[in-house]
């Protein structure tokens, strides 16, 4: 019971934090109508904000408050990273702003939703393990396996769609900027590989060829790889 109350408090704080984060974006847009979204810190900050919004939106459909234990720290770390490595105002790309902004917005949305799917997957694996080892109490603050699986499915489907659109807009951005379709490079190639992995996972799921545990494992591993491809490579550059 106490754990559930703490979760309620945590979710309320997340709502407050998302509101304040939104105000910060509004202020940034007021100061700089086309902010440097293509800069990694700002993109990470956007992804962290969208992660929390995706989680909160999910609560409207499914009782998965327990995801807050993974979503909140991830959003916090993303925001701290962005705050301590903020891009200088006006450092964004001036040309092809439409495609670059669309690319970053869609890719960040996809990253956020796949992050929620990854969190649901990780929590599923933890709960599954406890149930398998008969180490559970009869009451648990964790969401039911069924709800975690549904959250995973919903967030994965939407996240994969946004990620796919992010890849397409990325291609269009490169085409308008450099006149070629594929830029190559570690970031683009790694992201494409992870996209292909997600496509395979989605196909397997739709074909009902795997159980919920494998789906959870796929979502968790997929998101870890996506983080490396999108943020890890960006940090290394």
């Amino acid at each position: 019971m106490r754990a559930r109350r703490w979760l309620e408090v945590g979710v309320a704080l997340l709502v407050l934090a998302a509101g304040l984060h939104g105000l910060a974006f509004f202020e940034l847009h007021r100061l700089e109508p086309t902010p440097a979204l293509t800069e990694l810190p700002l993109a990470v900050s956007l992804a962290a904000w969208l992660l929390v919004l995706s989680f909160l939106a999910l609560q409207l459909r499914l009782r998965t408050r327990g995801l807050a234990v993974l979503v909140a720290p991830a959003a916090f770390l993303g925001t701290v990273f962005a705050a301590f490595s903020a891009a200088a105002p006006g450092s964004g790309e001036a040309g092809s702003a439409l495609w670059s902004h669309l690319h970053v917005l869609l890719a960040s949305g996809g990253l956020a939703l796949l992050g929620v799917a990854g969190a649901a997957g990780a929590l599923y694996l933890i709960h599954h393990r406890a149930l398998k080892q008969h180490r559970v109490g009869v009451r648990s603050a964790l969401p039911s396996l069924e709800n975690l699986d549904r959250a995973n499915a919903l967030a994965s489907a939407l996240g994969f769609l946004l990620l796919s659109l992010g890849v397409v807009t990325g291609v269009l951005w490169v085409e308008t900027r450099e006149g070629r379709l594929w830029p190559g490079g570690l970031h683009a190639n790694a992201t494409l590989a992870v996209w292909a992995l997600y496509a395979a996972l989605t196909a397997r799921r739709l074909a009902a060829k795997q159980g919920a545990r494998q789906t959870a494992l796929g979502a968790t591993a997929g998101f870890a790889l996506l983080l490396v491809a999108v943020i890890g490579v960006g940090v290394l550059r």
């Binding site: 149930l131 039911s144 396996l145 709800n147």
Partner: peptide
């Protein structure tokens, strides 16, 4: 938390089922 601690096998089974199924 008196009401939260079922001691019958049937109730324990129902509560465990609720951890798997929503």
């Amino acid at each position: 938390r008196l009401a939260e601690r079922p001691v019958s096998v049937a109730r324990v089974a129902v509560d465990l089922a609720r951890q798997i199924f929503e």
